[in-house]
Nucleic acid binder design. Structure first.
Length: 905
RNA sequence: GCCGGGGUGGCGGAAUUGGCAGACGCCCGGGACUUAAAAUCCCGUGCCCCGAAAGGGGCGUGCGGGUUCGAUCCCCGCCCCCGGCACCA
């Protein structure tokens, strides 16, 4: 601990009353103090409850943007608040440092990705420091450093041992521009999520993580996540896509020796009597088996070749025309025993279910379209509840309501029961079984890029695929590699890296040159923060037990599926390795909204930066032409509707930047940027500054007891709390009404701000309450205050104000804390507590309604009872006007809130 | 199409989930201070109507119904906006 009095020295020169609010100066001062005193360093302290507050770590792209400011301001409010509330708070920060842009920079500018990344991190860290965020930087994690990615490799090897990591040949999404494989999740509407290039199909040997092994658990786990936003849970559930149905064998009309039947998956076994044909996915190997030697073979092969060349997104677009070709083979519907034709259809997915379906055109839109195109029989087997369906159908009937018809012994059953009876029958007759299918696919982690974690596998001609022994980790990324941007990955071209010896037989061998998807890095970094310097394991289980799960995770909605699902998977996989005890990594999740701003466009110069617009006449500052004011959109470089946080901080300071980000909208909603709003936030801080400096000399005469500085407001609510334990001196004379009103305002504000932060992250209303508090304090005529009780009340108010402001605007709070005579940093001051007794109003103003409309208000002593209040209401002159000559039918009284007199006539 | 979230003054947003709609901020208007401006401080500000004024009345939370003494909030039926998923059998 620093010697007491040290802080006073820092602030001494700035505490004179005349001094104007100079954010740049005081922010630099306090950031230096925090760094020197290691104020935010945290160690495990079992005497206090823990709180793990985490914001999604950034990709070190070069500079922070307003989205970061918002994200980290939200997290910082919470971390500082919880610290002041007495929690042992873990609040770390790090860098998601592997990824494509570094490699692109290498190609375009000739900078090595490592150097580019390091520079960016260094710069962005100073930017974050200038925001005054309360991170424990001693726990900083950088995923591109061997100390981190070694453990990616270690985990990979453990997964490999357990069969959770495996390799298979598969058609992958290939981005021709990035020259890399993309996960399904990284393809958006057929385009690369990063560069928007149209994605094509390519066959490659790929590494996968068997996330599907946890599909069931990942889905059921969603039910436990009650503190996650509903829409994120919905998205996760959709993505996992569990469906219950049956698998059934449809025997071939002419069975092949080793292929007696085709297995299909359906959720609508109740419609099986309506299955009038079958469809196979074009990629299915069964297709070739069936057509071999048939006259249809040629046409089928042509069709398959044509379809499989088409890239997937195009082919699977929902509005895509249904196309197919008859194989010449037939199967037998196991229920009707009729022969049905087997087709190949472009809309059947090979990767889902069994890659083959029974087609029920009467009750499936796709099958109906297909059957209509090719003239296939449509048979109604579900009659709707009204009984109005007649053949020929004009459209498929897909509702799961009604009764089975044309379904043999099952006819007449309601749909739900038919499903069960038919499933029973299928199981009893041994032709199939109930099954659960997931939409979720295994996670392809192979990337043909340099700037990622090398996959620790060696290929030996004799021994085959050999994992790198644990002792040889990390497999280091070689520094000396070519960056051409052409052809194979740079790693594959680095002979010194590729050529190695087999760990088993010591013979010549080659290294795997694929690197891991960077989502691997971010799938467990939150565990690493708990013991960031652990050298023998990825995590120290004792430390992880102390801190996990993350109590509050904060980040963008764009990670609702990918990152969050992978992190949930990893947490379980690592749990099953015995390193972690929790199932779910993130107890509470807050997805903050986007930061948006109006866009400006000039017909000559295209998108304009806000600074390039002359706002007087809405003209382009370059050519003077009228500027088209576009809609409010997410801030983006391409649309140029951006505000650089650095400029903002230079002009107004970090406290203003933080305050505005928190005040302009509730965290989960989109925030519309407004220069005027920023001015408003700055003005407010100036108001606080002047207020405190005006009042500081007044209360300066009073003794500041450093052991209990905030205790005047902090201690009074402890378990044994009563008026007696309040350090505020009981005044000799009865307290003046001004004193009582002031203290009431103070304690009401403490309650409001505390509740708003704690309950629903209502930072905007918490700040509004602080503004009201300040407005109220400006109305107090402090100069007239002399009595000890009055001055105590002022001191209490000012201290509460500064303490309550701390999480939002920590620098100015520290400075004002010092200016009011305190010598210890605010960061660990106890959060103020309100005294419930002081909240009580002496008089109440109650609205009085007549027939539901407010006609008057009565002001009454707070302790009046129902009858007294009603009596006063009826006696009110204005109310009298409205009830004169009418019969009172009813009087509704809401406890201390409202009177409603119901009259008739 | 399915799922989720929304729709409140000129604007961003409040409202203890059935009890004074519009807190707080922005914008705008007025005043004080100033030689003047900026800054600052104070006051006003949903819309419409009556009134010279003090006051008073009506309307108002996307639209139409309903429940209730009373609805931004609950129910039914629509309209619109945003986000996600989308041939998953």
């Amino acid at each position: 601990m620093p010697a007491s009095g040290q802080y006073v020295r820092f602030a001494a020169g700035i505490s004179h009353m005349e001094r104007n609010y100079n954010p740049q100066e005081i922010e630099a001062t306090w950031q230096r103090v925090w760094a020197e005193q290691q104020t935010f360093r945290v160690t495990e302290d079992s005497s206090r409850p823990k709180f793990y507050c985490l914001e999604m770590f950034p990709y070190p792209s070069g500079r922070i943007h307003m989205g970061h400011v918002r994200n980290y301001a939200i997290g910082d409010v919470l971390a500082r608040f919880k610290t002041m509330r007495g929690y042992n708070v873990l609040h770390p920060m790090g860098w998601d440092a592997f990824g494509l842009p570094a490699e692109n920079a290498a190609i375009e500018q000739g900078v090595h990705p490592a150097q580019w990344t390091t520079q960016n991190i260094r710069y962005m860290r100073t930017q974050l420091e200038r925001l005054g965020l309360s991170y424990d930087w001693s726990r900083e994690v950088t995923t591109s450093e061997p100390e981190y990615y070694k453990w990616n490799q270690w985990l990979f090897l453990k997964f490999f041992e357990k069969g959770l990591a495996y390799k298979k040949r598969s058609a992958v999404n290939w981005c021709p521009s990035c020259e890399t494989v993309l996960a399904n999740e990284q393809v958006e509407e057929g385009r690369c999520w990063r560069c928007e290039t149209v994605v094509v199909q390519k066959e490659l040997e790929q590494w996968f993580f068997r996330i599907t092994a946890y599909a069931e658990e990942l889905l059921s786990g969603c039910d436990q996540l009650s503190a996650w936003p509903a829409r994120v849970l919905t998205m996760q559930r959709n993505w996992i896509g569990r469906s219950i149905g049956v698998e059934v064998d449809f025997p071939l009309a002419e069975p092949l020796p080793d292929l007696p039947a085709i297995r299909i998956f359906t959720t609508r076994q109740d419609t099986i009597f309506g299955a009038t044909f079958m469809s196979l996915a074009p990629e299915s190997p069964l297709v070739e088996r069936l057509v071999e030697g048939r006259p249809e073979a040629r046409a089928v092969r042509e069709f398959v070749a044509r379809v499989s060349r088409q890239e997937k997104a195009l082919r699977t677009a929902a509005d895509r025309e249904k196309e197919g070709v008859f194989t010449g083979a037939c199967a037998v519907n196991p229920f009707t025993l009729e022969p049905i034709p087997i087709w190949v259809a472009n809309f059947v997915l090979y990767e889902y279910g069994t890659g083959a379906i029974m087609a029920v055109p009467a009750h499936d839109q796709r099958d109906f379209e297909f059957a209509s195109t090719y003239g296939i029989l449509v048979r109604l087997v579900i009659q709707n509840p009204e009984g109005t369906l007649r053949e020929p159908l004009a459209a498929s009937y897909e509702e799961q309501a009604g009764t089975l018809v044309n379904s043999g012994q099952f006819s007449g059953l309601p749909v739900a029961e038919g499903k069960e009876r038919i499933a029973d029958f299928i199981e009893a007759s041994g032709i199939g079984a109930r099954t659960v299918n997931f939409r979720l696919r295994d996670w392809g982690i192979s990337r043909q890029r340099y700037w990622g974690t090398p996959i620790p596998i060696i290929y030996c001609q004799k021994c085959g695929m050999v994992p790198v022994p644990e002792a040889d980790l990390p497999v280091m990324l070689p520094m000396d590699v070519p960056f051409t941007g052409k052809g194979a990955s740079p790693l594959a071209q680095a002979e010194a890296f590729v050529k190695t010896t087999c760990p088993k037989c010591k013979g010549p061998a080659r290294r795997e040159t694929d690197t891991m998807d960077t989502f691997v890095d971010s799938s467990w970094y939150f565990l690493r923060y708990c013991s960031p310097h652990e050298t023998t394991r990825p995590v120290d289980p004792a430390k992880v037990d102390r801190w996990m799960a993350v109590d509050q995770y904060i980040g963008g909605i764009e990670h609702a599926v990918l990152h969050l699902l992978y992190a949930r998977f990893f947490t379980r996989a690592v749990r099953d390795l015995g390193l972690v005890k929790v199932d779910e990594p993130f107890t509470r999740l807050l997805t903050q909204g986007m930061v948006c701003m109006e866009t400006y466009r000039c017909e000559e110069h295209g998108w304009l930066l806000p600074a390039e617009v002359n706002k007087d006449g809405w003209r382009c500052s370059q050519c003077g032409k009228p500027v088209e004011r576009g809609r409010v959109e997410k801030m983006s470089k391409s649309k140029k509707n951006i505000v650089d946080p650095e400029h903002l901080i230079a002009k107004y300071g970090a406290d203003t930047a933080r305050l505005f980000s928190l005040f302009a909208a509730p965290p989960e909603k989109d925030l519309e940027w407004s220069d005027e709003g920023v001015e408003g936030a700055y003005r407010f801080l100036g108001r606080v500054w002047r207020l405190v400096h005006e009042l500081a000399p007044l209360i300066g005469r009073q003794q500041v007891s450093e052991s209990a500085p905030a205790a005047s407001v902090a201690a009074s609510q402890s378990a044994r709390g009563s008026a007696k334990t309040s350090p505020l001196k009981t005044p000799q004379a009865p307290p003046s009404s001004v004193t009582i009103a002031l203290r009431r305002l103070t304690h009401k504000t403490i309650k409001k701000v505390t509740d708003d932060i704690e309950q629903e992250f209502q930072f905007n209303t918490a700040i509004a309450a602080l503004m009201e508090f300040v407005n109220g304090l400006y109305k107090v005529d402090a100069k007239k205050m002399r009595a000890n009780a009055e001055l105590s009340a002022i001191r209490e108010a000012i201290e509460a104000l500064v303490l309550l402001l701390t999480p939002f605007a920590p620098h100015i709070a520290e400075e004002l804390w010092a200016a009011t005579g305190h010598a210890t940093t605010l960061a660990r001051q106890p959060w103020p507590r309100y005294e419930a007794a002081l909240l009580q109003e002496e008089v109440l103003t109650i609205p009085v309604q007549v027939n539901g409309k407010v006609r008057s208000k009565v002001t009454i002593p707070a302790d009046w009872d129902r009858d007294q209040i009603i009596e006063a209401s009826r006696a009110d002159a204005k109310v009298g006007e409205w009830i004169k000559g009418k019969t009172i039918k009813n009087v509704v009284y809401v406890e201390k809130r409202l009177v409603n007199i119901v009259v008739e006539g």
